[in-house]
Design a binder for these strands. Structure first.
Lengths: 363, 363
DNA sequence: TTGAAAGCGCTAACAC
DNA sequence: GTGTTAGCGCTTTCAA
């Protein structure tokens, strides 16, 4: 079904720049004819081959012909010859479900672009069938490799077909280690940072409201809390740690129990929880950060930056995750098979924790 | 999309399924050789040509050879022959900046996939240079067409190169009408719905806090408010409309003025504004919806569904926008050049407006 | 019912 | 320096 509808125009000048989509695309051959050279020469000029010694005058004629005809290379033909395209596939289980996945895409795209690659995206929403088709499609289009990503940090099965290509797991990892390259957020360091913000604020008795749902984040964020406390010479008190469902309602519902603990600060599993807790604290006539300092986790823009007061939190490095994934895929960054590469979760300090002034606060 | 499950047998049969990426890919020719037929026949079998009369026995042999070798068609070669790929390009100015763009991607992807197309995405963050390159790339990969989308509803210049392809504007439109197909949200109807929620709640004096920033949304949402009032037989009182910057701080800052108006309900330009207003109202000891009913606009999940009380609002149909864009591109939906197609913004009722009980409320 | 062969647009040896 | 000539993997007449 070749579109043979040549621009039947009147004037027979071969020159016809900026043609609209419908027309038969200009080919290398046409450029060569107009410039009076062979296709090989045009190819050499276009690809600026280093060792190609083309007369300046020739190069000039070719360049002119190209712009005159509005020539555009056919990437498909190029790929057919070379065997692999300039695509990197990104299979995601939730672009839509969450504001997070967007940042992974963004990071991957920026980094890919930097190296001349474009992103081929498939959103699977966890649908296995779709996922399989998506990977097949990417394989058929000869992608350079595939980034397999999840919207929250978790272990994942590796679809069999994924192994037909180069791939890197992003924000997830294989339960059997040593079988796949992966990049994930450093939850433990993030937990340390979160607790660190509070510690630096002069707090000694710090509650941690963890998630009820098992995940690497739940374990890592708790571990980080313990580490930070211990580094500050504070004993770990299990009574100060309890769990709630990790959303607004969970945070709100945790208020009562929190208030029985006699703490001056609380570190929440995530920002949504902190958001709910804000409401609960307010209803109890408590103000933040004076009566209770609060830190969250995730740095969810819409929430964290705009609560009152703005919420101190720890950033989940989604952009970096996407970028690092691409770099690992392209072999630009080290990518050990044994264990996932961890990306730092940097603290973001806002007004929900008062600046420390030792005099003000008693242990 | 050939499925090829089978685990590698044992010995050195030419069969060697599930090869890993590195190996030389299986070609049609190899399949043909193994099946003892010509490549043409294999091609016919694969593409299930209707009028291809292939002996069942032959078809059988071919199918077996295909699964045995783990053959995967080379989409590049296919495209080279046909002239256009099964790609639809999506150029977006902000996947990352906003939770909204994700939904456009999601809708576009679902619809595209349904018709056998995959999405090629480029996030430009408004960078003109990048945008030009992105479009060029898509053109080179022979996309079926391009969806050009913006993260908020606005007029936009059409990059010249976009015209080299089929394209549809999504969430934006050309200032010179009649020059491009476009699909946008129906802001006016949305405004009507927003005011309608309040009207149905029994409110007669309804304030509208509009945005300070000029946009189709600002105009449309105001118009909808007026329409709804007028349809309810309520005169438009300009004193009840004022403006604020459309974010949390703006909403918070608008509280004072709002309270001088003597209204029982307020319609905010967007959810973020409403979120800020919640804080302001609360500080004044007012409760929602008893003392003041509130509706927003946008239906930003993280915010609207989880404020307390949950916020009634109007949904921006991003998913539908993406899907409709694809349908228009593929010629499945009507796509007039004269004016943008408008997609409805459905109301989402939550607890920030009390259910109407006429007895309770006096004019 | 099937095979032979001519390309699709481009790159890469290898001539000249 | 530049042209000739094979393909890359696939589809598609046209014959047989």
């Amino acid at each position: 079904m070749i579109s043979q509808e040549r621009e039947s125009g009147s004037a027979a000048t071969p020159a016809m720049p900026a043609r609209t989509g419908r027309a038969h695309p200009v080919t290398l051959r046409e450029v060569a004819e107009l410039a009076g050279v062979s296709t090989a020469t045009v190819s050499l000029v276009i690809n600026k081959k280093k060792n190609a010694r083309i007369a300046d005058e020739t190069r000039q004629r070719v360049t002119e012909a190209i712009t005159q005809l509005g020539y555009r290379p056919n990437a498909m033909a190029k790929t057919l010859v070379s065997g692999t395209s300039k695509f990197i596939g990104l299979v995601a289980d939730g672009v839509a479900t969450t504001p997070f996945a967007g940042q992974i895409i963004h990071g991957a795209q920026d980094e890919a672009w930097k190296h001349g690659y474009a992103l081929l995206i498939a959103n699977t929403e966890g649908n296995q069938e779709l996922e399989k088709d998506a990977i097949a499609m990417m394989l058929e289009y000869k992608v350079r490799g595939i980034l397999y990503s999840t919207w929250f940090h978790r272990p994942t099965e590796i679809p069999a077909t994924l192994r037909e290509s180069d791939f890197v797991l992003v924000n997830c990892f294989s339960p059997e280690s040593g079988t796949a390259r992966a990049v994930v957020p450093d939850e433990t360091q993030g937990g340390q940072s979160a607790a660190g913000i509070l510690l630096r604020g002069g707090h000694r008795r710090i509650a941690f409201i963890n998630a009820t749902t098992p995940s690497p984040a739940r374990d890592g964020r708790l571990q980080g809390y313990k580490d930070a406390l211990s580094a500050a010479g504070i004993g770990f008190d299990p009574a100060l740690v309890f769990e709630a469902y990790p959303d607004q309602e969970g945070g709100y519902g945790a208020t009562e129990r929190l208030l029985t603990l006699g703490v001056s600060a609380v570190y929440c599993y995530n920002d949504r929880m902190a958001m709910g807790l804000y409401d609960g604290l307010r209803e109890n006539g408590l103000s933040i950060p004076e009566d209770m300092a609060v830190v969250g986790f995730d740095n969810q823009e819409v929430i964290a930056a705009h609560l009152r007061p703005p919420l101190s939190t720890v950033s989940l490095p989604h952009y970096e995750l996407g970028a690092a994934g691409v770099r690992m895929l392209l072999g630009l960054d080290a990518a050990p098979l044994e264990s996932a590469v961890k990306i730092a979760c940097p603290p973001v300090e806002r007004a929900s924790v008062a600046v420390h002034s030792p005099a003000q606060r008693r242990a």
